[in-house]
């Protein structure tokens, strides 16, 4: 970690919605190939934080540096970062008017200027990796939630990002579909991708995370390895949170 520049740096990031302080001095580094799971109660700012990393939300104070480029109002820097950072949303956000294949090839063709045939080959590769190549000609509305989310992952990967952000990727899924998405994410983690993942799937965190970050009321309360965090929580807030989600399971 010392010799390589970190993939993501958040340095005293602050954000307000009107007068509501949603991110308070959030400071966190994510190393290359590190897998970080962010958890916390709803409204704790974890989604806002992850959305600041590719500037879907704009922070007001502090520095965010992604892959060596600082996020500012400079549009070119933003374009560079968005090319390198893939994102998967809670509600999939596939483009319903495009086929699965077109969903995957749109950005490589129009942003990376990749020839169509090459982009389609790449897309089929990733669709095979998420195990749904046979759905390529269908429209998103014809797929199940789990399938849609796997397409969304493939779509993000088609841009060959260095970093992947997951914003509660399994929260909108029926229980029987969560596993297929998590399996996809696990194999992605195994391939050495830098990942930041907001999720409540503690099993997933245990299996792949190098580090778990616990947020509450806009600040990072505690962070550490999954084993340490789950078995030996230091703060009362984390203890309370763990007892609540474990009761739910």
């Amino acid at each position: 970690m010392a010799e390589e520049a970190p993939a993501i740096v958040l340095d005293k990031v602050n954000k307000w919605y009107g007068t509501m302080h949603v991110l308070r001095d959030v400071t966190m580094n994510v190393a290359q190939k590190e897998r970080v799971v962010v958890c916390g109660p709803s409204g704790s700012g974890k989604s806002t934080m992850i959305r600041c990393i590719n500037r879907l939300e704009v922070h007001q104070e502090g520095r965010i540096v992604v892959d060596g480029t600082e996020l500012t109002d400079d549009l070119r820097a933003l374009d560079t970062i968005r090319r390198e950072v893939g994102m998967v949303f809670q509600s999939f956000n596939l483009f319903p008017h495009l086929t699965i294949l077109e969903n995957c090839t749109l950005a490589p063709i129009s942003v990376r200027k990749m020839p169509k045939a090459e982009a389609e080959e790449l897309a089929m590769d990733f669709l095979r990796k998420v195990k749904i190549p046979e759905q390529a000609k269908k429209y998103p509305g014809q797929l199940s939630g789990g399938q849609q989310q796997r397409v969304a992952i493939a779509r993000a990967l088609c841009m060959k990002p260095k970093i992947m952000l997951f914003d509660e990727p399994t929260s909108a899924l029926d229980p029987e579909m969560i596993k297929e998405v998590l399996d996809t994410m696990v194999s992605l983690a195994d391939s050495g991708m830098t990942m930041v993942c907001v999720t409540h799937e503690m099993g997933f965190a245990r299996m792949v995370a190098d580090r778990v970050v616990f947020m509450d009321r806009g600040e990072i309360v505690e962070s550490g390895t999954p084993t340490r965090m789950f078995e030996d929580p230091q703060t009362d807030r984390l203890k309370l949170f763990l007892s609540q989600i474990l009761r739910g399971h």
């Binding site: 949303f89 509600s91 956000n93």
Partner: peptide, 22 residues
Amino acid sequence: PKGQAEAADALGLSYWQKTMRI
């Protein structure tokens, strides 16, 4: 839904690409 524009942004599409295609 707002997510459509956000997904296009996250993929790095420019304003006009996002508007005309999505």
